[in-house]
Simulated assay, not measured.
Amino acid sequence: MAATRFEVRFGGTGGQGLLLSGKMLADALASEGKNVAQSQTYEPTSRGGFCNADLVIANGEVDYPLPISFDCLVLLDQLAIKPSWSRTKPNALVIADNRNCPELPAGDYPCHHLPLSRTAIELGSERVTNIVALGALLELSGICKRASIERVLRASSPRSFLDLNLDALAAGYALAAPVAAAAS
């Protein structure tokens, strides 16, 4: 992470586990000694309304806890594009589910349409799309060590979901690995 302030948004709809992904990433980053401010927005509907989890990550003190312009945008639903796009930096890393976000606005950014939800379904549950996306984000951005996120995942997953969550995280890393290798 070269910048002293780095902003990430997980955007989608309620029920996709975005807040959980944001919290797990914040916990993993904090365990590495980074300062993190976490916030979220969601519509009053429990499922289907716009939802996002935002992180402001800093090597030093977080001077302002809310995001200003995103360095990374993870989109799990088309509904999240409009409220997020205008706050995305030029050349920001954009990761989008190719099934739920088939079209993105034109722009100068590296966009990676990945089969996030399809991969989760193949693993046995669409409910782990957020964890697949988290693995892809970490592989492509390098903002957090894999061991750190795995520790948090093990500590915060219900026992009945632990193996599925670990498989989903590994699948996200594997989806993004060829893209990351091509970029380096």
Rank of each mutant, 00 (worst) to 15 (best):
C51N: 00
E43P: 07
G48I: 04
Q16M: 00
D71N: 12
G33A: 07
L19I: 06
Q16G: 00
N35E: 15
G49W: 15
N59K: 15
P44A: 09
D71A: 08
T13H: 06
G12R: 11
K34E: 14
G49H: 11
C51S: 11
A58S: 15
Q40M: 03
G33F: 10
L66T: 03
D54Y: 06
L55Y: 06
L25Y: 03
E43D: 15
T13P: 00
T13I: 15
F70T: 07
Y64C: 10
E43K: 02
G17M: 01
L25T: 05
N52W: 15
L29F: 06
G22R: 05
C51E: 00
V36W: 02
L29Y: 05
Y64T: 14
D27T: 12
A28P: 13
L20E: 02
Q38I: 15
T41A: 13
S46H: 14
E32D: 04
T45L: 14
M24I: 08
R47M: 09
L25R: 05
I57P: 01
V62C: 04
G49E: 09
F50Y: 12
N35V: 04
D54S: 02
L55F: 12
P44H: 09
L19W: 02
M24D: 03
C72Q: 02
Y64P: 01
E32K: 12
V62P: 01
L66P: 03
T13V: 12
N59L: 15
L66K: 13
I68H: 12
Q16D: 01
N52R: 07
D63A: 10
E32T: 04
Q16E: 02
L66Y: 15
C51F: 03
V36I: 05
V74N: 04
N35F: 13
D54M: 04
S31W: 14
A30W: 13
A53R: 07
S69D: 13
L75N: 09
F50H: 09
Q40A: 05
T41H: 10
G15C: 04
Q16N: 03
S21A: 13
D71P: 01
I68Q: 04
S21L: 08
G15T: 07
T41E: 14
A58E: 13
Q38C: 10
S69V: 13
V62G: 04
L55D: 12
C51L: 00
C51P: 01
L25G: 01
E32R: 09
